[in-house]
Amino acid sequence: MSQLLVQEKEIVVPGETIAEGMDYIPSKGMYRSGEQVKSAHVGLVYIEGKVLKLVPLSGRYLPKRGDSVIAKVTDITMNGWIMDINSAYSAMLPLKDATPEYVEKGADLTKYFTFGDLVFCKISNVTSQNLVDLSLRGPGLRKLNGGRALKIAPSKVPRLVGKQGSMVSMIKKYTQCQIIVGQNGLVWLQGEPEQELLTIDTIRLVEQRSHLSGLTDYISNYLAEKCGPLSDEQHNEQVNDDVQETI
């Protein structure tokens, strides 16, 4: 007989038995040991019919092709930049994918990006050995000037973005800040200084409460309390940033 040993949204730790019997199917982040399905991470269990899903609550960002990330320049080479993407591996941004301009051989690349610069870019390729290539070709991809950057756990990024970007666009509407969320857990924002601080507080709150239900309502109440209710104008305003967040 197959039997489930945890409830929906329960927190499990590595080695904890989630279900017994062959009727339940483990997915990523779990493994089968004999008849039992066990967790391999600290995470939340979601039950979808017979398929068990585990959403890890911590962990490093694993680069994936097509992800938009915020990267930081750590080194400059002959033909591009070495970037830190907040993962186990550094990434390469080749010159030819960074600028449409013609660049003379041996030119000084610091005039495009220099050490410490943040760049919003896309992962164009990841090899089996996790060599990561970045690209700036795409809508909204650019160097991030000024503003503030903060790190959140990469596993919480989907919650901060929300369905079709609902959470982040709500925060944008209330605080009038520009926000860019990288899939790697780096968040960049720019706006009025006080609003920036409020945005950071809000993002931290989302991170803290990401596993609880009713998060969107909680955050909208929090923001309404801090900045007053939205005017009609704000309410209907399309957040027309040049950046389209992806989930």
Binding site: V13, P14, G15, H41, L57, S58, G59, R60, S155
Partner: peptide, 10 residues
């Protein structure tokens, strides 16, 4: 486990 590394058990 807290760091989110895949582990069979503690």
């Amino acid at each position: 486990a807290d760091a989110g590394i895949a582990m069979k058990d503690l």
